[in-house]
């Protein structure tokens, strides 16, 4: 078993044409990994590459040591689960329906497995509620439960903390940490949440389809990388063992009343 669950080697990835130009990176297992990058940098494309939803124009993508080109779509559930930020909203599906739509390797997640995943996240009382009527935070937890029920070793979550209030955001972060610790799975998230990145084991910063930096949070969450990543002045302070981020931006606050 390789130490890395996902490896990209000189990968060129995109749709009609490559968005990601030449990317080499690896994601350790088990880990909570966060991909940071400005809008349009190729974060979502990177996640989609792993589920073969984006086209690989050149180079290689390995999943669990296996060349992705040799994994047929029908076998993907054995390797990976994907949770979008949202699913089509005009549905009336119960929470249980949503979780049971996940694959369990070759078969489908059973009601029993679905309930266990919901219970693990402490949301089993939502099982028979209509998914559409839940709050954004509850919906995110259900989609995480769906990923968890799939028993895949790699869970891809697109922006799992976006649009959440601070409390819900930290609940999601601590749940993701707990999943990685308990289940020894790798959770890969993409988004703009630097707090989530700080609580990750591994952070990947990509910009304009190219790797800017990759490493532990302390390697990435610093003045140099963040300022370059977002093209604004960002300062990171370590005070009393805690890390604070100050975003200067280009706004001049001195004239403000």
């Amino acid at each position: 078993m390789s130490n890395y669950i996902v490896r990209f080697v000189n990968a060129r990835i995109g749709y009609d044409e490559p968005i990601i130009k030449d990317l080499t990176l690896s994601i350790p297992r088990p880990s909570l990994t966060t991909i940071l990058g400005p809008n349009g940098s190729g974060k979502t494309t990177l996640l989609r590459a792993v589920i073969k939803y984006a086209k690989i124009f050149g180079g290689y993508v390995y999943i669990d040591g296996k060349n992705l080109n040799e994994v047929p779509v029908s076998n993907l559930p054995k390797y990976v689960s994907y949770s979008p930020t949202e699913i089509y909203s005009q549905l009336s599906l119960t929470v249980l329906d949503v979780v049971m739509s996940a694959r369990n390797g070759g078969g489908w997640v059973s009601e029993d497995e679905a309930m266990r995943a919901l219970k693990y996240l402490g949301i089993d009382e939502l099982a028979y509620r209509n998914f559409d009527e839940l709050s954004t935070g509850q919906k995110r937890l259900v989609l995480i439960a769906r990923a968890l029920a799939s028993k895949a070793p790699l869970l891809l979550l697109d922006e799992p903390t976006s649009n959440l209030d601070l409390g819900n955001k930290y609940r999601v972060i601590s749940i993701l940490r707990r999943i990685v610790k308990d289940r020894e799975v790798t959770v890969v998230t993409a988004g703009h949440d630097i707090d989530l990145a700080m609580h990750s084991d591994w952070v990947i910063a990509i910009k304009n389809g190219e790797l800017l930096a990759m490493g532990t949070p302390s390697d990435i969450i610093n003045d140099k990388v963040l300022s370059e990543l977002y093209d604004i002045k960002i300062e990171v302070f370590d005070v009393g063992g805690r890390r604070f981020i100050y975003i200067h931006g280009n706004i001049d606050f001195t004239n403000d009343e």
Binding site: K52, Y53, L76, S81
Partner: peptide, 11 residues
């Protein structure tokens, strides 16, 4: 019906 990416990752 849920999402193309979800379908794809579900085989």
């Amino acid at each position: 019906m849920m999402s193309d990416e979800v379908a794809q990752a579900s085989g």
